[in-house]
């Protein structure tokens, strides 16, 4: 890691001011920041430690939904009885992520900002070309080993996958990211790479994620997060799906359904086409499988990641069928 200075912010305001300096970065759980600092991807001059700030780790869950402070740890949220009851997919997305140790360290705010696992992004000394790290330098991944790269939302500038699990569940249930007084729907929080893959979220210099808010909904309450990967544990998703379903009073007609994908796209990916085609229908295996294929409309393969285009709809279908009692 490049040498940096370190100080503990006494308040959110002080932290916010400090990050206006070029070269200053906030330090929370550190699991992404210190990892990337070791890789030489991030080279902060100053780390502003916010882990000691009071109040930013609070959680409340009530009939309206959940508000979760940015400094709440992944593990705390995963184990929170209220979250587990009202937002099973959210709790599962967290408990299926990383390891118990990392979940004790990483914060919810930091988790939303975790960076891609693209191998080319992570080795700046070897692969100087990376538009995400160094705008305009090119993309080393295109034409390389792309087994873990995105098939959705890619551009000619970047095919790096967003590795998040939590954000996928949040996107499905229309959560908000709170940055002090500013509040942004999480789907709008993440940006497509386009020509500027270095610009990943709408977070502005000096802004701090202070928390997330997840509105309660019957679909969120009846939800699941399904994560498929090579290894049984401690691995990012090859493909994942957050799905929640609300049925009509008849118990079988779909009133509301939420579908989002992870591990396959450059940002957490809401699959509205799948949702639209199933709302108002009674689920059956064939219809669900057909609808799920809409989740990868427009997908582009770069060779090694071709399997994701086949895999993702199957993950979506299984998650829907599971919640529909058909799996």
């Amino acid at each position: 890691m490049r040498d940096f200075s370190y100080f503990r912010a006494a308040s959110t305001e002080e932290a916010s001011r400090a990050t206006l300096d070029a070269g200053a970065m906030l330090l929370a759980g550190g699991t992404t920041l210190l990892d990337l600092a070791k890789c030489g991807v991030t080279e902060p001059d100053t780390l502003v430690d916010i882990t000691h700030l009071a109040g930013l780790g609070d959680m409340t869950v009530d009939a309206n939904g959940a508000t979760i402070g940015a400094l709440a740890k992944m593990g705390e949220v995963a184990d929170h009885p209220g979250v587990k009851a009202a937002f099973p997919a959210v709790a599962q997305s967290l408990s299926l992520a990383a390891s118990a140790q990392l979940r004790n360290m990483a914060t919810i705010g930091g988790n939303l900002l975790q960076r891609t696992r693209c191998s080319y992004f992570r080795e700046p000394g070897v692969f100087p070309a990376c538009n995400k790290r160094n705008p305009g330098s090119g993309c080393s991944a295109i034409g390389g080993v792309t087994r873990n790269h995105a098939v959705l939302g890619t551009s000619r500038a970047c095919i790096a996958v967003n590795p998040g699990d939590l954000a996928v569940a949040l996107v499905a249930f229309d959560a908000y990211v709170e940055m002090g007084r500013r509040r942004v729907a999480i789907e709008d929080f993440y940006m497509l790479p386009g020509e500027t893959p270095d610009w990943e979220t709408v977070l502005k210099k000096g802004e701090i994620i202070t928390g997330i808010a997840i509105p309660a909904s019957p679909a969120a309450k009846n939800s699941t997060y399904l994560k498929v990967r090579d290894r049984q544990s401690y691995e990012f998703a090859a493909a994942s799906a957050a799905v929640g379903i609300e049925f009509e009073a008849d118990g079988k007609t779909v009133r509301d359904i939420r579908v989002a994908l992870g591990g396959v796209a450059t940002r957490p990916w809401r699959a509205r086409a799948v949702e639209q085609s199933l709302i108002g229908t009674v689920l059956n295996v064939e219809a669900v499988e057909k609808a799920s294929r809409l989740s990868v409309e427009g997908a582009v393969s770069h060779g090694g990641n071709r399997y994701k285009i086949e895999l993702a709809p199957r993950v979506v279908a299984r998650a829907i069928l599971t919640m529909g009692g058909l799996a």
Binding site: Q101, N104, M105
Partner: peptide, 8 residues
Amino acid sequence: RVLSCLTL
């Protein structure tokens, strides 16, 4: 439990 390699 935490990882000391990613903790300052």
